[in-house]
Design a protein around this nucleic acid. Structure first.
Lengths: 330, 330
DNA sequence: CTGAAAGCGCTTACAG
DNA sequence: CTGAAAGCGCTTACAG
């Protein structure tokens, strides 16, 4: 393995001067610099990160612990955003996909401690509360928050997401929307219900009776979509809903099939709106699903920047808003 | 920061003995060991990975360069499989999501060189040919292969996947299947077409006229599904197809909508089969899509094991078979 | 079973 | 503008 000492020998100069060239110290004679750079290029030399870390007492490593994030395509964007931000900042991101409170999580924390990571981003696949107590490494929470507080956290502003989406819906003259919501123990569910109802109230509409839970759990805790059970009754009413707002795009897909079974055409007989912009479902549905996208990429990037500048900012929760993606479902 | 020297001082022993305890060297007095372990636990000490790498001249790092793999949910499994295998082998996997031949790829290679990675896995989001020449680090190709050869490569056995799926279809008495295939420049397409036709021939059926390309590209190169253009003609024929085999699950979704437009019920009027088992689409379609799953998790794990034992095995292409996931679409 | 010495490949701190 | 010395925190190689 080539070292700076070897390069110095070949360039007939000292180890230290080679180090200066590599670290872009301007105080090097131009000719000497050129000679050294030529040799480095020729030999394909790259300085040892391990030696640098050790001597400089700086790892430049930021950890990213993802609680099963890497299994849904939208939350992958959290990782991409963080990775790109790390690159721009000259940091090395180390990713660990774990299951919460399992051995995998302990392993990740240990590896990050061994690498002397400067900070850690802890991400969850959907907005939820977590309980982080026993970590040695400073932490930024992403898509989750700690009930006790005291952490930096970046989460979607679910209330606002629902308020804005409902406003768009009502501005298009829909007057009898129903909201097929996620289970109430999901953090987003009550926040969105409130946004939905308050956006209605702001336009003189009472939507408080128009919120239904359309996702339940099976015995294993896996989500089961029951739009096909709920919609027949709802759509048979005298004042039939003119739009179905869905708690997530997967539920919207379930709604598409349920409406087809009822002989109703999405976008014509009844509007459908949703949250997520889940790739590739939102686009592949026919008609394409108009939905509120969460800016996962930007959230990941924001978390990385927060992690890098952790000590210079006071902790707090940042709520990010979304972007309406218009297709053809309402 | 705590060091082994500090622990040795507190335990009234030498640095070397502490090192022995940490590295599970059995030649340590039990009492001394207990004393040292107690102090380590108390202080929450973790040995510096940087120092270990440097002194032992062994990084224990395996790189994973993914060419946009981290954007489709099925190929995420490649990453999970590799990560878990690395963990089991006591290796540290370093992941880089890149775009091929871009600056991001060069950055990844440089970082991995700086960390003195022992090997690299290069993964693509679907089976394809790549051109890898200028790398210093030994490499395993995952879901791709090098036309020139000389690399370890792990790829799906597309011919066999199609042969087996077609055999299942024909064994269920379908007699007029059509294959809506991917574009011909996709590596999998001709292999699967051959598997389809040969499985038919093995049962005395000539399927050579039953293969159609149902995915084209727009001006930007993005895939466009055209089942809705192809199916009306096909389904109007006197000898109407009794099953549509789709080149991928997203195309199958397109087919579901096209068949609905024609007033045909999937699973009753006509069967649908596919390749991928794409999460969550295959499961969310109604009826659920019966499809040939690619074992991405296992492929990722196999690539990691190959990367770890790179020099002890001769290079070659490993073709992996799939697993039929039965739902209700045929 | 234990330990003193050397050294991995760099950067730091200092002296010219 | 340049360089000699020290040392980051470990493991290796060796000697008891």
């Amino acid at each position: 393995m080539i070292t700076q000492r070897e390069i110095a020998r070949r360039a007939r100069t000292s180890l230290k001067t080679v180090s200066r060239v590599i670290n872009r110290d301007p105080l090097v004679n131009a000719e000497t610099r050129a000679r050294i750079e030529a040799i480095i290029g020729e030999l394909g030399y790259t300085p040892s990160q391990a030696a640098r870390m050790m001597r400089s007492q700086k790892s430049n490593v930021i950890g990213f612990i993802s609680d099963r994030v890497a299994t849904t395509s939208s939350s992958i964007e959290l990782i991409r955003g963080a990775q790109d931000a790390a690159w721009k900042a000259g940091k090395q991101m180390m990713l660990f996909n774990v299951e919460r409170n399992s051995e995998t999580e302990r392993h990740a924390e240990e590896q990050l401690a061994a690498f002397r990571a400067e900070a850690v981003i802890y991400a969850t696949p959907y907005h939820q509360s977590v309980d982080r107590t026993a970590t040695r490494i400073p932490c930024v929470l992403l898509n989750c928050f700690d009930a006790v507080g005291g952490y930096h956290a970046i989460v979607p502003d679910d209330y606002r997401l629902a308020y804005e989406l409902t406003s768009i819906i009502l501005d298009r003259s829909y007057r009898r929307p129903v909201f097929l919501n996620l289970p109430e123990d999901i953090v987003a569910a009550p926040l969105r219900a409130r946004g939905f109802v308050e956006a209605g109230a702001a336009r003189g509409l009472d939507l408080s009776g128009a919120v239904h839970t359309a996702v339940v759990r099976d015995s294993a805790g896996a989500p089961v979509f029951i739009a096909d059970h709920i919609l027949p009754g709802l759509m048979a009413a005298a004042a039939r809903p003119d739009l179905i707002l869905c708690g997530q795009d997967m539920l919207a897909m379930n709604v598409y099939f349920a409406l087809a079974d009822l002989g109703l055409k999405v976008g014509q007989d009844v509007g459908v709106a949703s949250f997520d912009n889940l790739h590739p479902i939102a686009k592949m549905l026919q008609p394409g699903l108009s939905t509120m996208a969460l800016p996962y990429y930007e959230m990941g990037a924001a978390a990385m920047f927060a992690a890098i500048e952790l000590d210079t900012h006071p902790p707090g929760i940042v709520r990010v808003s979304g972007r309406f993606v218009e297709r053809a479902s309402f």
